[in-house]
Amino acid sequence: MYLLLAIVLAMILGFILIMLGPLVGGIVAFGVVAGCLFRGVYLLHDMHRRISRITPKPDRAKEAYQNYIKERENVSS
């Protein structure tokens, strides 16, 4: 249902932009497209920020120490 509504609204907006003429319609169309792109980038940045808080960051020093202990156990056995 929402897809059909979005298609109809896009058609109405396109018709209005064509009636405004190429200069005004082009500027408004560019603003709509650029605004959608900037909003998408902002949402991606926000999602990345939220997910990076949840996932633990790897501790390289701890991993290196555990690898050292494993290698030491393998050599001594």
Rank of each mutant, 00 (worst) to 15 (best):
I18R: 09
Q66H: 04
R53I: 11
D59W: 00
Y42E: 09
M47C: 05
V41R: 08
M1K: 02
H48P: 01
L4R: 00
L3R: 15
M11L: 15
I54K: 11
I51A: 05
R49N: 09
T55Q: 04
Y2N: 11
P58S: 04
L37D: 07
L44T: 00
F38Q: 06
S76Q: 13
R50E: 11
R72I: 05
I18M: 15
Y65N: 02
V8I: 11
Y65D: 10
G21M: 15
S52Y: 02
G31C: 08
V41D: 03
K70V: 13
V33T: 13
Y68H: 07
A61K: 10
A61D: 07
A10C: 10
V28M: 09
V28N: 00
L43A: 04
Y68K: 05
L37S: 14
H45Y: 09
M1R: 00
H45A: 12
I12H: 05
A64H: 03
L13F: 09
G35T: 07
I16D: 06
P56Q: 08
F38R: 12
G31L: 11
N67H: 05
G14V: 12
V32M: 10
L23A: 06
R49Y: 06
E71V: 01
H45C: 07
Y2K: 04
L3D: 12
L9V: 13
A6I: 00
K70P: 00
G40S: 09
I18G: 04
I54P: 00
M1G: 06
S77I: 12
Q66P: 02
I69Y: 00
V75S: 00
L17P: 01
T55V: 08
L9A: 11
R39L: 12
E73L: 15
M1I: 02
M1W: 04
G31Y: 07
L20K: 02
P56H: 02
E71D: 11
I54V: 13
L17Y: 05
P22F: 00
M19F: 05
L5C: 03
N74W: 07
C36T: 06
P22V: 12
N74P: 03
S52D: 03
C36E: 15
A64N: 11
L20E: 06
L44R: 03
R39A: 09
R50G: 05
A10I: 03
P56K: 02
E73S: 03
T55D: 02
N67L: 14
K57P: 01
M1V: 06
L20Q: 07
L23Q: 12
I51P: 01
I12K: 05
S77L: 14
P22Q: 14
V33Y: 09
G40N: 14
E63L: 12
D46G: 04
R50I: 09
A29Q: 03
L23P: 04
G14A: 10
M47P: 01
L43Q: 12
S52W: 01
G31S: 07
V8W: 14
L3Q: 12
A61I: 08
G26W: 03
I51H: 01
V41I: 15
N67D: 13
H45M: 11
I51L: 10
Y2S: 08
M47W: 13
L13R: 12
G21V: 15
G35K: 08
R53H: 10
Y42K: 03
M19K: 14
F30G: 14
N67Y: 00
Y68A: 10
A6W: 00
N67R: 10
Y42W: 13
L37C: 10
D46W: 05
R72D: 14
Y68I: 05
E73I: 06
K62G: 02
P56M: 05
F15N: 13
L37K: 06
P22A: 07
